[in-house]
Nucleic acid binder design. Structure first.
Lengths: 219, 219
DNA sequence: GAAAAAAAGAGGGTTTTCCCTCTATAAAAA
DNA sequence: TTTTTATAGAGGGAAAACCCTCTTTTTTTC
């Protein structure tokens, strides 16, 4: 029987090392590719054609969601398992939307990851059992096509708005944010107001919650 | 020369494995303790007396900040190096406040972590060079005693404070919270101020972040 | 190149939050 | 029983956030 060819994409070198160690107990696994980010992966995977793509979500350059989207479009047979620190609904559903077939949390036991790889490799889907309960309920209720529904797309924020939002979450005042970004406090205020409207928030608390839920800020 | 006794505290088993692999290249390092969370660490460290504590910040049960605080109070010679995915000023300063002597990001190269351990073990402080520039400036300006200021202890909130915190996260104003809890707006205001002090926050944003991190509010 | 859209900034007023200090009362603790 | 602590409340001032409208500049698009 052929070995299962595995690709690891994660910007944390040490986490990659840990994964390799964890997977080394399985003689039928072979790590054929390691990448620091999505860009690197997309550049190199055609050479080695991995069966399973272990994919971090939060990465510089090209994040896991976009990478998975591009990967599954170019190579529909790619079997992507998302690895994330977060069990936030948004991430999970976006990742499955993008074409992932498995989702495990990074605090999972090595055994669970091995199991997930074997299951996904056999053509099935794998969800970590410690995944968001609400999401699970949704899955049970709507059979399965939950993830291919038109995802009410986020009233996304532009780069400046995101920087400001990040600084708000770091407890900076409007004045301070202006100084940091070399913009007038009045401009920052206008951005805040625009964000309140976009995110349908009443105040700073709402903005912070939104930032965390959408993954703009990671705790 | 004696080996450097190292403790690893992180809820991600795989990350711990990766760390062990990374540190195994140094013959004078010895991993004497591995813990899943702060509670476990505090229970077991007296047996082995590690020299260096590698400490994750985001952990279940007892987070890295509280753990470090308790650890350095009971054992002032403990040399804690924070490991975090975030370079948010807030975390960094809270961690140093709690008594940490080093701070590295989880995407650091193994070489950097080894360097950090050696430096901190020699009695010095270590800051990742990719850490927040603004924080670095603060450090340079005020020499160093920034972080050794009087540390307010146990930021535990009582029931009323928690209800108010929850309502703040639901975007209610002080006045509205007073109406809901049948307390005067002035009382709510006083509670807010007390919570700002307890949680070392500057404003509402900080309170919301705290609420989420401590699990008072679930997203 | 003109029109439209996005980004940056300002004026001015209202509300809310922040930050003191200080009082009163009820419940625990010494 | 006195003292301390927790809880509830108030005054007043300063700062920040909120919320309009409106102008200018830059960038994009037709």
């Amino acid at each position: 029987m052929d070995k299962i060819k595995i690709s690891i994409t994660d910007d944390h070198k040490i986490f990659r090392e840990g994964l390799k160690t964890a997977l080394s107990v399985c003689p039928d696994f072979e790590i054929v590719l390691e990448s620091d980010n999505g860009e690197e992966l997309l550049l190199n995977y055609p050479r080695v054609r991995p069966d399973i793509f272990l994919m971090d979500i939060n990465m510089p350059k090209l994040d896991g969601i976009s990478t998975t989207k591009q990967l599954t479009q170019a190579f529909p047979d790619a079997r992507v398992i998302a690895l994330s620190v977060s069990n936030q609904e948004l991430y999970v559903s976006k990742m499955f939307d993008a074409g992932a077939r498995g989702y495990i949390l990074k605090d999972a036991d090595p055994e669970e990851i091995i199991k997930a790889i074997q299951i996904v490799n056999s053509g099935e889907y794998y969800f970590a059992d410690n995944l968001s309960v609400t999401l699970f309920k949704k899955l049970v209720n709507n059979n399965h096509p939950v993830f291919s529904l038109p995802v009410a797309d986020a009233p996304d924020l532009n780069k400046t708005e995101i920087s400001i939002l990040e600084l708000i979450c770091k407890e900076h005042t409007t004045q301070e944010i202006g100084d940091i970004l070399s913009l007038s406090a009045k401009t920052i205020e206008n951005y805040r107001m625009k964000m309140l409207a976009k995110t349908k928030s009443r105040n700073t608390a709402g903005l912070v919650i939104y930032a965390i839920q959408k993954g703009y800020v990671i705790l």
